[in-house]
Amino acid sequence: MKDAPKAQPGAVKGLKADMIWGVIWVALGIFAILYSMPYAEVPSFDPIGAAYLPRLLGSGMSILGLGLFIDSYFKFRNLLRTVKVESTERDGPQSSNYQGAVRILLSIIACVCYIALIEPLGYILTTPAFITAIMTIYGESDKKRIAAMAVGMTAALYAIFALGLKVLLPPGIFEGILQ
């Protein structure tokens, strides 16, 4: 970065991403306009109808998305013109980024499993498993701490919600035992 005083690390990547985001928003805006077309045909109690706001928002999104794209495109060109970045950008700590992405992916999978299993298996079984999974994914190595947290947190939540507030948490396989 010696010969590139103005470029922030990741600036080029950020601007490229912004250009992609610009396209995404334009697409979402156009989608909103097209998808809400049939709503205009539905008779409504009011003069402007059900399609009015989605259309307005869709148009706004497309225009602003285009604005974002153009804005970041010019910033991108200026940056390339004034700064030599190619080599410095590539040297980033790739491996830690990669591990971070894996951790996120694993956490999301854990969440999805939790959602899928909470009703069939029951709250008091899935919650400690979920907490254990998240802590392990985060990199917690203290087994005792994981166990204490998994049991303790589940018990505390169960006490607050099911016993204190009388909300029904899914009993799952304990159905019939826990009433």
Binding site: A147, V151, T154
Partner: peptide, 9 residues
């Protein structure tokens, strides 16, 4: 908390 949890259970 964990003792409490076991008791409640």
């Amino acid at each position: 908390v964990s003792v409490l949890g076991i008791l409640i259970g």
